[in-house]
């Protein structure tokens, strides 16, 4: 349990650092702003208590807000995504998945399943985030374009990252 806690903390710090130091500095266009830190919330175990997921989402958002001078923005979108995730998993996973502590990752559920899962939730997260950032619907379609492009890039980066870690895990198992 304690080891689990440290693993998660380590993962969290690594992902947040990657977002802040690498992803945030890739300034491709004003239409492409990927946020990959949500992979931490996406890959929490399926059987984790719902209230804990919502709480973890809240703190993840709070950390991101602290480092990007945007009070409430990431918090609101992360909490929303964390809450929707509970229902998505309830419909998209079988009962057996709930018996063990399975993580919804590429290695466990397959690339297609993960792509659909990540795209849905990332889109919802970005939807809330980008419209709250502009704080209104006065640039509706421009913001929507921004959301779609950013979602594509976020999901791409998240999935590639997953594939990389999947390989590493398999090699270790063989040894």
């Amino acid at each position: 349990m304690i080891i689990d806690l440290f693993t998660y903390l380590f993962r969290f710090i690594l992902i947040v650092l990657f977002q802040l130091l690498v992803i945030n500095n890739i300034e491709l266009s004003t239409y492409i702003n990927p946020y990959i830190y949500i992979v931490f919330i996406l890959t929490l175990p399926v059987d984790m208590k719902p209230w804990l997921v919502v709480l973890i989402s809240f703190f993840t958002g709070m950390v991101m807000d602290t480092f990007s001078s945007t009070p409430g923005l990431h918090m609101a979108s992360c909490v929303f995504m964390g809450y929707v995730r509970i229902f998505y998993l309830r419909f998209a996973t079988s009962k057996e998945d709930f018996s063990g502590s399975i993580k919804p990752t590429v290695s466990r559920k397959g690339v297609v399943w993960f792509l659909v899962y990540a795209t849905m939730l990332t889109f919802l997260h970005h939807l809330v985030l980008f419209y709250l950032e502009i704080y209104g619907f006065n640039e509706f379609f421009r913001t929507l374009t921004r959301i779609i492009f950013s979602t594509v890039f976020s999901v791409l980066l998240i999935t590639v990252g997953q594939l990389l870690f999947y390989r590493v895990a398999k090699v270790n198992r063989n040894e």
Partner: peptide, 12 residues
């Protein structure tokens, strides 16, 4: 969920 979301919106 509701209270945390509300809190975020108030700050925002």
């Amino acid at each position: 969920f509701f209270s945390l979301e509300l809190f975020s919106f108030v700050i925002l």
